[in-house]
């Protein structure tokens, strides 16, 4: 009995210790950062405004002035819009590619080729076609998000056991029944993995994409703070970019925990 209780307590304590180490890592990081700026490692002119203390006070200022929301919301909107459009296009393609061997053969070289091209390379073309602005940024983000979604979905749909399909057919299933009840649900874990990767790369590409002439967004704001010599705000913006990315990924991990079945 005492053994069991001891075990439980140890389990709870163990979790607490795990979390404590997570927090400790963040504190250490901030400490190193602060010391580096106090030791003038970023150069005598900038070190003071590069420090976390300066960044946090700039962050407070940006929150109260409304600047933070003003630039975060368009960024999040662009990423979510492009993800939504990417999902609509990529999931059906991924299922087709994964399930039909011929479609996979048809598309393999082209897809592997396309996914290796940085979407920023398409930037001039995007601007010629869509002009400077929201549409171009969304297009570039879409272009980076579709590949992980297509490739992971097709991997998932390709893993569907022929046994499941045969069994379904002897249970009277038609093609659409097999698609809806077997192939798509079977691919859900891989779709979610694809989504997680897509969110990651979109968020990373967002910042340079927003440097292409849009009037708002976190990427734009980075350039803006630079031009105004507000390096404290620049550092604060970098922290916000990291924090939002972290939250998006956490949301994704939650989705995976909730909806991905495991064998």
């Amino acid at each position: 009995m005492s053994n069991q209780n001891g075990g439980k307590a140890a389990g709870f304590q163990g979790k607490l210790v795990d979390r404590a180490f997570n927090v400790l890592g963040v504190l250490l990081f901030l400490a190193v950062w602060q010391s580096a700026s106090m030791l003038n490692l970023f150069g005598p002119d900038f070190s003071a405004s590069f420090s976390p203390v300066a960044a946090f006070s700039a962050l407070g200022e940006m929150i109260s002035s409304g600047e933070l929301l003003h630039h975060s919301i368009p960024s999040i909107r662009r990423v979510l819009t492009s993800l939504f459009l990417a999902i609509i296009v990529a999931l059906p393609i991924g299922v087709l590619v994964g399930y039909f061997k011929r479609v996979e053969q048809l598309t393999y070289v082209v897809f592997q080729f396309m996914r290796m091209i940085s979407p920023l390379a398409w930037m001039p073309i995007a601007i010629i076609i869509f002009g400077v602005g929201d549409v171009s940024v969304t297009f570039l983000l879409w272009l980076v998000a579709i590949w992980p979604l297509i490739l992971n979905t097709s991997h998932g749909a390709g893993r569907v056991s022929p046994l499941w399909v045969n069994m379904s057919r002897t249970m009277g299933a038609g093609d659409s029944g097999i698609l809806r009840k077997v192939i798509i649900p079977a691919a859900v874990p891989d779709m979610l993995t694809g989504l997680r990767l897509a969110v990651g790369v979109s968020w990373i590409i967002l910042v340079p994409a927003e440097m292409l002439g849009v009037p708002d967004g976190l990427g734009y704001f980075i350039l803006d703070t630079r031009d105004r010599f507000r390096y404290d705000q620049l550092m604060a913006t970098i922290m916000v970019i990291g924090a939002i990315g972290y939250l998006l990924d956490s949301g994704n991990r939650w989705l995976i925990r909730k909806f991905a079945w495991k064998i």
Binding site: S161, L163, W164, N166, M167, T170, M171, G172, K181, V182, P185, A186, V188, W261, K262, I263
Partner: peptide
């Protein structure tokens, strides 16, 4: 559906 087949391997949908 008039001929139900039970396979040697299990064919349950894991999700």
């Amino acid at each position: 559906a008039d001929r139900g087949m039970i396979f040697q391997e299990y064919a349950l949908l894991p999700w």
